[in-house]
């Protein structure tokens, strides 16, 4: 096993008190990525502290509904860390009701925006975020847009496009080429 991979498994086991299963993959160029599912959402905070100790950089946080909307039965939040070119993803599985995660902002300053962002797009509470306000989404729009729009989207999907196309058709009937 490569050095980075061994160190990651060692610090995760140390932080979480048990060995964590990390699936390591290599792409066609030999670049490694590790994938690990944590048992409990709270574990992400000690895990992040341990990774910070290894010099890992928090690269991105991806929240999602699983399976794809509108059949979602749960949510996931995936934290992607960079270890000098190797990407490690820690994934939390969260319920549809009462999803909560601890804020990583006290450990990683750049978690601030990432957390504000998934908080405004999904029904996920971020515990202990220092500045939990809207970031990109205008206050006039409903919260948790990725979820609210599930039933709504079938209605609005293409609505503005349809209106425009009716006008295109009308113009051709008036003015056939």
């Amino acid at each position: 096993m490569h050095e980075v991979e061994a160190r990651v498994e060692l610090v995760l086991a140390g932080a979480l008190g048990a060995r964590q299963v990390v699936a390591w993959r290599r792409d066609v160029k030999g670049v490694a990525s590790g994938w690990c599912r944590l048992g409990e959402p709270e574990q992400v905070l000690p895990a992040a502290r341990a990774l910070a100790g290894l010099g890992a950089r928090l690269s991105m946080v991806s929240a999602s509904l699983v399976p794809a909307a509108p059949n979602a039965t749960g949510r996931e939040v995936a934290y992607h860390f960079d270890l000098d070119g190797t990407t490690l993803t820690l994934t939390l599985e969260l319920p549809l009701q009462g999803a909560r995660v601890p804020s990583l902002t006290p450990v990683y300053r750049n978690a601030d925006w990432q957390e504000r962002e998934f908080r405004e797009l999904y029904d996920i509470e971020v515990l202990g975020h220092p500045n939990p306000g809207r970031l990109f989404v205008d206050r006039s729009l409903e919260p948790a847009l990725f979820e609210r729009l599930i039933p709504y989207s079938t209605f609005i999907n293409g609505a503005s496009g349809e209106k425009l196309w009716r006008q295109v058709q009308a113009a051709q009937q008036e003015n056939p080429s």
Binding site: V137, D138, L141, L145, L149, I156, N157, G158, A159, S160, G161, L164
Partner: peptide, 15 residues
């Protein structure tokens, strides 16, 4: 003119 690639997004109001 028409909303282009972004038409029908929750965050876009055009044309």
């Amino acid at each position: 003119i028409s909303g282009g690639a972004f038409r029908d997004s929750y965050a876009v109001l055009g044309p």
